[in-house]
Amino acid sequence: MRKIYLALIRQRDHVVFFLAVLISFTLILTNDSRDIAILRGKANDIFSFMYKPVSWLRSMAVVEDEAAVLREKNIQLKLQIESMLNLAAENEQLKNLLNYRRESHLTLLPAKVINKGITSNMNTITIDVGTDQGVKRNAPVMTPNGVIGKSVVVGRHSSIIQVISDVNFRLSVQVMPSGARGILSWVYGDLCEIREVQKNSEINIGDRVLTSGFSDIFPKNLPVGEVTGIREERGSYQKIVSVRFAENLGSLINIFVITKQNDAVE
């Protein structure tokens, strides 16, 4: 026993390295376990609390400009709402004529971005709402410009959001007006690609990309971005569509979490 102990002490560099690698691989392979999620949620609450003063300072610096932009946007949105209400009324009339009713309801929880992670590249953000405010794991997150990600770790007062630029983020989307569907994943910067799109679908540059509704997480028809390019791979039955997503991830401050979605077809 003593010999083993002395051998371990002599080789402690290698032993510690072996243990560090083993523990790291175990953590990577058990990312989805409940215990890890709870630990990360609690750690995130602590780090969010620590980052609050910096976040407050930063928000003070931009609050005036933000208010001006929001006032302008408010007026534009009011005008849009007016015309949309008219269209909705007309739509309702036509649906009633067809004897068909559909309700869709999204409950949006506003939140502030308090931290954008500390690794070399940004792939997550931390927001100041958690289970106490009704946020659950895998809740969709968006801005007025479109979808930006989903919650992956939820603490009591804060949540970690996996944004579109994370290497493991996938989104089922459809390209309008053709309705062609595919899986969207991030490439670099503000560019994504949609794969598994049928080769015979009609897609043009400038077409809107929306969520398809096939996912259990993201409701249908949430904006994602705009088509910027289409290419076909030789020998493949599919197209690859390049998409520029609508939101600038580097300047996220205010976002919305979808806490409730209700689709009922009668």
Binding site: I23, S24, N44, F47, N115, T119, T126, D166
Partner: peptide, 21 residues
């Protein structure tokens, strides 16, 4: 690395501790 990952990472929790080690 562990503290970095705890401070906020979307996927591959444990990658930073591995690379820094």
């Amino acid at each position: 690395g562990l503290l970095t990952d705890l401070a906020g990472v979307g996927s591959y929790f444990g990658l930073s501790s591995l690379t820094y080690s």
